[in-house]
Design a protein around this nucleic acid. Sequence first.
DNA 1: ACCTGAACACCGTTCAAGT
DNA 2: ACCTGAACACCGTTCAAGT
Lengths: 223, 223
Amino acid sequence: MPQPSAQRRGRPPRISREEIVETARRIVDAEGVGRLTMRRLATEIGSTPMALYHHVRDKDELLVLLLDDYAARMLRRPDLPPDPRERVVAVAGTIHAMLAGVPWIVEVLTADDLLSEAALWFTEQIVDGLVACGLTPDDAVRGYRTIWYYTAGEIMVRAASTRRRERDDRPTYRERVFGGIDPAELPRLSALADRWAPLTAEDTYLDGLRALVDGLVARAGTA
Amino acid sequence: MPQPSAQRRGRPPRISREEIVETARRIVDAEGVGRLTMRRLATEIGSTPMALYHHVRDKDELLVLLLDDYAARMLRRPDLPPDPRERVVAVAGTIHAMLAGVPWIVEVLTADDLLSEAALWFTEQIVDGLVACGLTPDDAVRGYRTIWYYTAGEIMVRAASTRRRERDDRPTYRERVFGGIDPAELPRLSALADRWAPLTAEDTYLDGLRALVDGLVARAGTA
DNA sequence: ACCTGAACACCGTTCAAGT
DNA sequence: ACCTGAACACCGTTCAAGT
């Protein structure tokens, strides 16, 4: 119920930032970020593109708002195991599980390697866990970044290949390339040609993560 | 010198696939993939957008052609150290060094986790190196994928943050977020707030890669 | 203060026609 | 066979005007 304040003067707003973000979220959930356009959003909201620019600076700002909105309603802090190494794995695994369903978020937030204020807790846990495993604070930050690269890469690469598979009927680049392999020159790949597709379909994120964390911790003693 | 063949009939072509790819490469090298549009390419070539569609199916196909072109002129096989673990590190490091300068390639090729025929040699070396370290062939493929996720993630995240830094003058998301940290709740991050920017600027790809490979090899004995 | 319409400067791609 | 012009169905954003 819009309640015209005695203080504020001028025309009462017909649309709000909240309504914009909410509608944007609905579009993105239903059809992906690719379908979110200022024009589409405006019609959906029953307004004009330009009205939006009165509430958000530009599309980029809208995406950041959307990000915060997702973070606020998506982030659930996992139970933390006592062992610090397992804690790092659990936290990174949770981040991965949360983001895998909404890969567009990774694209928006890659630039800054952390999600939003609500997500800093996750970063804190990983850095703290790595320190508890014996890394210096500086190395723990480096380790956190390494884990993030791996996590973001996994999500983006998988999202991209799913996207391709969905819309493309021509044989994939991969199939074309694997077809022409010379076993003399590339013996391993030629022996593995049949296994490649099923192996690629596997979800090996956690295995890779464990290997990475093991390696980071093992190197702490070395340096 | 166009030499009208006696066999081929009809209007002689005025533009060729080669010329299209070559011009596209010039644009991308000079201004980035973001600036490569069919219209722009057509004017650059002195033709119309539609003439291009006679030589390439669509923009996606053009990007793949461009990819092959880059692969052919960029790939240099590194010297391989005898130790298999070092071999994996050397090959992945070479891939990373080659791609870091042209991050758009990663975006195009993420979908298929290998570049082109010319790049299969690199995949072969990594898989073979991991097998020589004691991994089963299947695990070596999984390990290769893990390395690729990490490598692609590193390049894409770094590219995205560079992009932001270039065009944005408002304080970054990160700065805003770090400003409001509560030391009681996030002690590590608050202690590291000043170190975050310089640590993030560091190139730690190789350190992370070594940790990852160590971890992959160490787990081979476990399973 | 808030919203609108028209316009600018773009996209990728299709279609029908020209040589 | 190859190329062109005009058009379709879009983009994000700015500007000047309206209420």
